[in-house]
């Protein structure tokens, strides 16, 4: 167990096994290589990806498939190899959210999903070469707060 200062959860205790290893850091944060996932509310929809090294580096994430039913992409061979991914079932995918006030204007980065291998806890932020996806998809695009045209 280790004690961790966090951005949104105060001080928490975590086990070493809970740590996710981002060997190459993530774009913009090349030195942040070690993170934990902490749930935000008890519904399990939103999580925080918290750096174990820097308390102020934390991202709100969610499963993109909950909000974007047609979301799909291929994981390239280099990434499969890098994370030693053997089976699709071992892969967890999260999208980083840019939370806005009001929350209904929050956006999801579908162009660069987090790919995490549950088997070995290796992870990375994958940049997709797919022009359908960009960095700011409204999370509630189909909801009641849709912009009027």
């Amino acid at each position: 167990m280790m004690k961790l200062q966090t951005k949104y959860h105060g001080e928490v205790e975590i086990e070493d096994a809970a740590i996710w290893h981002f060997e190459g850091g993530i774009p913009g944060f090349p030195d942040e290589k070690s993170f934990v996932l902490l749930p935000l509310l008890d519904d399990g929809i939103y999580m925080v990806l918290q750096s174990t090294a820097s308390p102020y580096v934390a991202f709100v994430v969610t499963s993109p498939f909950l909000f974007f039913r047609d979301y799909e992409f291929n994981i390239d061979d280099a990434t499969l190899e890098q994370l030693s991914i053997e089976k699709e079932e071992d892969v967890r995918v999260y999208a980083i959210l840019t939370v806005r006030d009001p929350f209904s204007e929050t956006t999801a980065n579908l162009q660069a999903p987090l790919i995490m291998n549950e088997k070995n806890h290796k992870a990375k932020q994958l940049i997709l070469n797919d022009r359908h996806y960009h960095t700011r998809h409204p999370l509630f695009a189909d909801g009641p707060d849709k912009e009027k045209g």
């Binding site: 580096v57 940049i127 700011r136």
Partner: peptide, 12 residues
């Protein structure tokens, strides 16, 4: 790549 960096900074 710059877009991703920028959005990560916003998200953090």
């Amino acid at each position: 790549y710059l877009d991703i960096q920028e959005e990560n900074a916003n998200a953090a």
